[in-house]
């Protein structure tokens, strides 16, 4: 088991955002968290990485309990986080952005160098010294993933990777995620785009109003029309 979340509760102020979320991501698989805007997908990911402090529940990552730790300690255990709004350091060049994400090589996880990343994202290799702020949205989205990979994570959390991207770029993103999986990484992503999830995910969890409503393989989700219409409004 790569990541196991058990009975997670989180609040924003007084608003109860997550109510008893339980899910698990197995080693080497791609898990999609599905649900409407505001359902609690993003909060789940942020609670796992420590940006939101859960009020109750247990989070186990690669055998270690991580709930309540600071984000940097969690990241140093090999859990990477790619935020939804990219959050590139716009004043820093591509190379500097990667430098901020750099961590020591880690056993049991692929080791990334800028050169290896530029093979995966050839565009970035052509703009090493360009400030992040002068890149297009698609390029920024690639940089934010590359930056997280510089930490040599064992598992990556991707928050809404396809949001706001052109269809063509979304296809490239799907290809990237499949490559990461082939490298042996575990991936947990939150999504609203079912087309995209269907292309990359092995299993899916549906969250609605802070609760888990469905857990199963993508094939099971395909077969469960009720879950799709009721919780995903497709």
């Amino acid at each position: 088991m790569m990541l196991h979340v058990e009975g997670l509760h989180s609040y924003y102020g007084r608003a109860h955002i997550l109510a008893d979320v339980t899910l698990e991501a197995r080693e080497g698989e791609v898990l999609a968290l599905l649900g409407r805007n505001g359902a609690g997908k993003s909060t789940t990911l942020k609670s796992v990485i420590g940006l939101v402090r859960p009020s109750a529940g247990a989070i186990t990552f690669a055998g270690a309990r991580i709930e309540g730790l600071s984000p940097f300690r969690i990241a140093r255990l090999g859990l990477g986080f790619v935020p939804e709004d990219r959050r590139i350091f716009t004043d820093l060049s591509v190379m500097e952005n990667l430098e901020v994400g750099r961590q020591a090589p880690r056993g049991g996880a692929p080791t990334w160098t800028p050169d290896r990343l530029f093979e995966l994202f050839p565009n970035l290799g052509r703009m090493r010294d360009r400030p992040g702020g002068r890149m297009s949205g698609g390029e920024q989205q690639m940089l934010t993933i590359a930056r997280t990979l510089m930490g040599n994570p064992r598992c990556v959390l991707l928050d809404e990777p396809s949001e706001g991207l052109a269809p063509l770029i979304v296809e490239q993103m799907a290809k990237t995620i499949r490559t990461l999986k082939a490298e042996g990484l575990s991936v947990v992503l939150s999504e609203q785009n079912l087309h995209f999830s269907a292309m990359v995910a092995d299993r899916a969890v549906i969250i609605e109003k802070g609760r888990v409503r469905f857990t199963g393989t993508m094939d099971e989700l395909r077969a469960d029309e009720q879950a799709r219409t009721q919780y995903l409004s497709v």
């Binding site: 052109a166 269809p167 296809e171 087309h195 999830s197 989700l221």
Partner: peptide, 16 residues
């Protein structure tokens, strides 16, 4: 070529 791609990201009524 520059935008729509293969069309996998839209069009089918019930995806997944």
């Amino acid at each position: 070529a520059v935008y729509l791609g293969s069309g996998a990201m839209f069009g089918h009524e019930v995806p997944a």
